[in-house]
Design a protein around this nucleic acid. Structure first.
Lengths: 367, 367
DNA sequence: CTGAAAGCGCTAACAG
DNA sequence: CTGTTAGCGCTTTCAG
């Protein structure tokens, strides 16, 4: 017979069961288990957590009793004593975007596997520095660690973070203090443009985004730097007028492409800094009757699901891995293992599909 | 002068500061504040939480001292005493999908506003019933409530949930016990097809998805039912062979559309049960040289960002509101307000763009 | 190897 | 109005 919970060890407040047909189950506490197993709560605690110094037989008995009682430690209650919450937070600028939802998904999978809960918090108006501080402030002692994904952190904020007992890992942003998932945006820009150069293109347009504060992780800036370097290596100088702002959205990409294609000397190829902007480019090209890839080669970044469907050549970033890698680094750090190990994201990878084609000197349009 | 933390009230373990240049700040506890303000901890607690029975002057003083000490209550520590975690969880089948990331975003915004933390947990293989139970089990006592978004709950699971002190709200799924954000999928199907009928279409294809367990929220089934009803009202009978499975993905929609359009009697209009499938339809049509909307009208569901860009007519669902509405209902319930109020999601709304056109008896293709 | 006891930081009666 | 006294459920020395 399973040990019963009929007589709880401590006096209960005798609250009358609510109107529900069956009263809510009184959850077994560690004390119930101790009583039933004939040991002390300390032993139960040790036994169940796999700590040493517990006789095998005792441990087995405790485990069995716990199982029968369906006992589960109340993690929230153990927090004050253990000083850990078994929870981490991921801070993102917004969660309903392709990129960040994938980052969160990756982090969630890793955390779940290790028994950590994942709190998501969005720091929407990253413009307001105070937002970030307030966010961390609110998280204080609620989580063991936090992942900042592309959230700009000011020096004072980083400094402030140091004073908290908090594991920190960043994605994109680098702090010189915390491990960072370093996305090599320069390399990404290089790879994309090298591919276009290999195909013989020399007149290349770029769909970029707002230049960010250079003090922080400047994603568009770095990618464009890479593109510039690749061009230079081929003896071509980047024409700044060929860089249009696509704001990292589909519609922005469309507008920017319309702009580039209506020049007197339209580019023969376009490098979109994100797949979503590339989608916009596809729409713009269609509107103008420009054939991709015969008249215009197009390459994006990300490898969004839709990219495959429309045959978009792209630089694949395994985004979910960004989140997963960050989470692993954080958990490693929290578990006291070598926390200095830099989390390394997967290499960006060129995925050639059908949106890029060898440049032909004789432009079809002029034929 | 600000009260100092130099002499903490209780004996400290004297842990030596870590190797960090500046030692981690010893966080002020309620006891520090009490000492500094010359009151008891109970008073501090009351004062800071805005409880009654605190003299205005006392409260002001306590608040001031707390501010100076940068005191912040340790919510985790208050859990055991207060019995609340100020945290809710949202359980989704997957987080990196357009729909669910928006649901989570909506819920997050509401929770953040009310000071609740949001835990995301994905129940990937919903096929395994035990997954869901295990998920809830793990959440027990870690959260005050949970939102199940389109997560199929078996009767036993619902029954099991009742025995836990847990606020529950569902999206999609109905339990007869918990408030549900009821998505009127029948109405959605009806609206879409009515629009096509209004334009004179009678031969309508449908891009659907796997029929789900009818015992649960059968999204594709309900939408098709609605479509069927609308057709019937116009004296048309739904041709089952005109319903193709698009699996709710872009590529699935493309495949299904290729199939429909290669019939000897292709539909003159297609109702895609989701925008993403509609995107696939756009691709398929282009591949086959079928002009949208002149030769084929197309309508989707969701109002995905990309829908606007490509001019897709659609039934808008304000998805983030699904999450927000659920969260509001849950918080209402947790705060003891009228928890019986059904959370009502925004009405679906027909957004006419350029992908649908009046049917012309003389098919261009046969001209 | 095990138990007793002392908290973790805060809240919640219950007296004043 | 305010302080005192118990804990919440678990972990952790420190003895045995």
């Amino acid at each position: 017979m399973a040990p019963s919970l009929v007589a709880p060890p401590r006096a209960y407040c005798g609250r009358v069961a609510e109107s529900a047909p069956r009263p809510a189950i009184e959850r077994a506490t560690i004390e119930h288990v101790a009583l039933a197993a004939g040991v002390s709560v300390a032993t139960v605690s040790r036994a169940l957590r796999g700590l040493p110094n517990v006789a095998a037989a005792t441990r087995a008995r405790v485990q069995e009793v716990a199982r029968q009682l369906d006992y589960r430690a109340d993690t929230a209650a153990s927090r004050p004593a253990a000083g850990r919450t078994d929870t981490v937070a991921v801070v993102v600028p917004m969660i309903n975007s392709w990129y960040f939802s994938n980052v969160v998904a990756g982090a969630e999978a890793v955390c779940a596997e290790s028994g950590y809960d994942l709190l998501v918090v969005s720091a929407p108006t990253a413009a307001t520095r105070h937002e970030v501080i307030a966010t961390v402030e609110a998280l204080h002692r609620r989580v063991d660690g936090v992942i900042f994904a592309e959230v700009p952190l000011a020096v004072e904020e980083v400094e402030d973070l140091r004073h908290r007992r908090l594991g920190v890992v960043t994605i994109g942003q680098e702090t010189r203090i915390y491990p960072a998932v370093r996305i090599d945006n320069g390399r990404i820009g290089e790879m994309a443009v090298e591919h276009l150069l290999d195909l013989g293109h020399r007149h290349i347009g770029i769909l970029g985004g707002q230049a960010e504060d250079p003090a922080h992780s400047d994603v568009p800036g770095r990618r464009i730097d890479g593109a510039r370097a690749a061009l230079a290596a081929a003896g071509v100088q980047l024409d700044p007028t060929l860089v249009a702002n696509g704001a990292f959205t589909v519609d922005g990409g469309r507008q920017a492409t319309l702009e580039l294609l209506s020049r007197s000397d339209p580019p023969t190829a376009i490098f979109a800094l994100s797949d979503e902007m590339a989608f916009g480019a596809v729409l713009a090209a269609r509107e103008l009757g420009v054939d991709i890839p015969r008249e215009l080669s197009l390459i994006g970044v990300d490898d969004h699901e839709v990219a495959q469907v429309i045959g978009l050549t792209t630089i694949r970033q395994r985004v979910a891995e960004h989140g997963a890698v960050a989470a692993r680094a954080l958990l490693r750090r929290l578990s006291g293992e070598d926390g200095s190990l830099e989390p390394v994201p997967p290499e960006p990878e060129l995925i050639v599909r059908t949106s890029t084609l060898r440049y032909r000197a004789v432009d079809i349009r002029s034929a």
